[in-house]
Design a binder for these strands. Structure first.
Lengths: 343, 343
DNA sequence: CTGAAAGCGCTTACAG
DNA sequence: CTGAAAGCGCTTACAG
């Protein structure tokens, strides 16, 4: 029976018998009891996704979906656990998870940062997702922030822009660092001047984006394109542009980051942005985890970078040709810049 | 041992012994094996949340979080399953779920509509979430659309508005119906005229909302307040108002529905809206499900309505006082209304 | 190759 | 009251 239903390689029964067994199983509505099987095989066929916050992040869905799809394909169920950042809750949840014998865990955060993997997970296969582990020893899957930022700047430079500013989250972290690094690297590759005055830090919401953009637009030599740290800051750039009477993309080009649901499409014109690959990250992390769960050996504890694709909508246009040379002439002549008006 | 660790009522061991047993368990890192326990007790302590779409809906998070928190509190784990609307996938998933002996299932959709509960769930405790079951026999938890719409109209009427229009999803469904019913009921309660010309149907996105609002604003006697079927349509109402040179809330008041993450706060002024109580619904449905799982009897197969609270932001202002009496005088005198200009 | 028995780690009904 | 045994439904190593 068991041999037939589990479809073992060498046939222990004739084709006819197999057919009859299957038929009987079907008519009786027989479904093998996974709990009993799990007790014997010491495998629950269950993976956990442990995360800090899910409720407030609009892209949580993609991350979960990617993980779930990959788990399913391998015949595993995905258990969801949200700690809300509460350590006590987290410990409690991890105990429950281990009691239920989950085969492995994804330890995820909802934005790219550094985390310490809880001790309760010791001995269990773990992959860190959308975060960097504080201590070594765990493989992790993160967005390729640097390459993503390069893509953004490349898109802008490709449209002829030479004064490309960057409006950056004032908080430090892997995302801010990586995107700044990418911005600088691509500026250099394009042979463009990396003026520190064109990098403005602010709170990572639309108010911060607006403030930073106003500061840039009021400079003597304002940028013709702004790369925003994220889509919410890009919304602020739109506001600032409208306040200064600048049209997007005719007078100012804008590229965001994240590809936040709703924002990109509701803005007018639509926001060109670099997408955070949440689905792909969830999927990749789960595949890594399954390799460890099913395979004998642990995967190396390295960071797997996932590409961030550019989503073209309507916020990037060609740079105005006439003004650039004039201003650059000024700079080259070493003339003093007029004092900037900050407000 | 077992008796001590499970803290049975009547003490089978002395306090000292109990202490020693617990101590030993702790030092050995002993965690009871939930799988073995489940095999014996025929309870996996696992609940499933089966849903059509999660990835693209921004409020999925709240629904999941509410369900998860309630499950946790009772010591249950929540397994997530997303079918993406694919029936074949759904059947496969349900088989896997039953094989893993889940104790009950939440069958959810990401917006309020009518669903048929799959046969594979027969015999398992099921609660339908954010949807109405096509066939009777299942309890369900849904937002109180009608009361929510009444709240919106009441807020507008409370600010003195007497010409309150409704911009409605052209697709039929429990949400559209309930909100329309609530709109009419509250209009009646406030003693306001229910002019059919003030209900305009359109696609439920910002483009549809804009089109519908323009139609209303171009009427001979335009509304001073618009209640929008959802927040995305409300965004369209903002666009339309701006195109006609109307300020919100000075010249036009707007109330939305859903309380979509991002939208309400990014708009300027902030959108006053009726919130869909996703967290509360997830929680309520799970509690209902647990009552059935743990209790002997099935809960009655009735619909549990969850209240939709009003979120006040800045889009509702007082109605302009002068014009209202004049117009009402006109109507009261029974004079013919000037023909409306539709486009 | 095949069938019967042991055992996964618990809980529970039962004999002492 | 308490300890030892049976059994949950599978898989797997083993004797025939």
């Amino acid at each position: 029976m068991s041999a037939v239903l589990n479809d073992e390689g060498s046939p222990r029964a004739s084709v006819a018998t197999r057919e009859r067994v299957h038929e009987a199983a079907r008519s009786l509505g027989y479904v093998p009891n996974g709990i009993a099987r799990g007790l014997r095989t010491r495998r629950s066929m269950t993976l956990a996704l442990i995360s800090d916050v899910i409720a407030t992040t609009p892209y949580a869905g993609q991350l979960i979906q990617g993980a779930q799809d990959a788990a399913w394909r391998a015949g595993y169920l995905l258990v969801l656990v949200n700690t809300g950042g509460n350590t006590e809750l987290e410990e409690h949840a991890i105990r429950a998870l281990r009691q239920q014998q989950v085969d492995g865990a994804l330890y995820a955060t909802m934005y790219h940062r550094v985390v310490s993997v809880p001790q309760g997970l010791d001995g269990l296969p773990v992959v860190v997702l959308d975060a960097r582990p504080q201590t070594d020893g765990f493989p992790c899957v993160v967005p390729d922030e640097e390459a993503g930022a390069r893509t953004a700047v490349e898109e802008l430079a490709g449209h002829g822009h030479r004064r490309i500013a960057f409006v950056l989250d004032e908080r430090d972290g892997p995302a801010a660092r990586g995107r700044l690094r990418g911005y600088r690297a691509e500026l250099a590759r394009q042979g463009l001047l990396d003026d520190p005055g064109r990098v403005v830090r602010a709170a990572s919401d639309s108010a911060g984006g607006r403030r930073a953009a106003l500061e840039l637009l009021d400079q003597a030599e304002p940028p013709t394109a702004i790369f925003a740290f994220n889509d919410q800051m890009a919304v602020g750039v739109y506001h600032a542009a409208s306040e200064r009477g600048l049209r997007i993309p005719e007078d100012l080009s804008v590229v965001g980051f994240d590809d936040l649901y709703v924002i990109g499409r509701e803005l007018s014109p639509g926001l060109t942005t670099v997408a955070l690959p949440h689905y792909a990250m969830g999927e990749a992390a789960t595949q890594l985890l399954l390799a460890e769960v099913e395979g004998a050996e642990r995967p190396p504890a390295v960071a797997r970078l996932v590409a961030c694709p550019l989503i073209r909508r309507g916020s990037v246009g060609p740079a105005r040709s006439p003004d650039a040379p004039a201003h650059r002439g000024q700079l080259a002549a070493g003339q003093p810049l007029p004092e900037r008006s900050h407000r």
